[in-house]
């Protein structure tokens, strides 16, 4: 679905990562791991089409034709709390793929889709509340519901567990595991920590010093570098 071959990634003329080789197949659960500022989000932004691939080969192919449908969960801190949006309003944004003017004039929407996604994420009871009033874990559930409302083939999460207590982290990880199984999703999760989520990953991309090392999670977790990171976290 996603393939980088000898790719250079970065912003403008500045290279952040070089010689990136990475292939994501349908049904994989990838963890893109590394320290803060290592370039994890750069990989994610290139995949999503937010920045162009600077050099090398990058392809993203969906099940039908063209790009795959992405469901994106951004870092919750990037969303401005000033907007007077309810959790339902935010989840409904996932359905804004088309203009649908006639449907809009008729007053029809995608309420059934939004309701189902909120329910799948255990966020139905939050629907009427203002997003900015919710806790970190509740916000994450709503943002995952929004990503699901886009009916994605690939779910992409940027630091979904940052700033969330361990109990909520575990419940979010359980939710992701269930969603992946029930919706046959391919999942990519960017994280600067690995302790709570390592059991979910089928593959890991470790980002450090402008390079990306990839492999199956068992192999990567057995490597000395990641072991060292785990010890530090523990």
């Amino acid at each position: 679905m996603i393939k980088f071959k000898n790719a250079s990634l970065g912003y403008g003329k500045a290279h952040i990562l070089s010689h990136v080789d990475l292939e994501i197949k349908r049904g994989d659960f990838w963890g893109i791991l590394g320290y803060n500022g290592s370039g994890k989000t750069t990989i994610l932004k290139t995949m999503l089409g937010l920045i162009p691939c600077q050099k090398g080969e990058f392809t993203a192919t969906g099940s039908l034709f063209g790009r795959p449908r992405f469901g994106y969960v951004p870092q919750k801190e990037r969303l401005d709390p000033l907007y007077p949006l309810s959790a339902r309003d935010v989840a409904a944004m996932g359905t804004y793929r088309k203009v649908d003017l006639l449907q809009r004039l008729r007053g029809a929407g995608h309420e059934d889709v939004v309701n189902r996604c909120l329910a799948d994420c255990g966020a139905t009871h939050l629907a009427g509340r203002r997003l900015s009033d919710l806790s970190g874990g509740q916000k994450q559930r709503v943002l995952i519901a929004r990503a699901l409302a886009a009916e994605p083939e690939i779910l992409v999460l940027d630091e979904p567990l940052a700033g969330i207590d361990i109990t909520t982290q575990l419940s979010l990880l359980k939710l992701l595991k269930e969603l992946k199984a029930s919706r046959a999703l391919t999942v990519l999760m960017v994280s600067h920590r690995v302790s709570a989520e390592r059991g979910l990953f089928t593959h890991i991309a470790w980002v450090e010093d402008g390079k990306v090392t990839t492999g199956p999670s068992e192999k990567m977790l057995a490597s000395g570098k990641l072991n060292e990171v785990f010890k530090t976290e523990l």
């Binding site: 999503l48 089409g49 790009r67 994106y72 951004p74 990037r78 907007y83 804004y96 929004r146 992409v156």
Partner: peptide, 22 residues
């Protein structure tokens, strides 16, 4: 009013708007 959804989406979360193909 007609394009309120689009104006809100691109103002609130540009990255998601791009991801949705807008």
């Amino acid at each position: 009013f007609l394009f309120q959804r689009e104006f809100t989406l691109v103002s609130y979360d540009r990255d998601t708007a791009v991801t949705l193909g807008r």
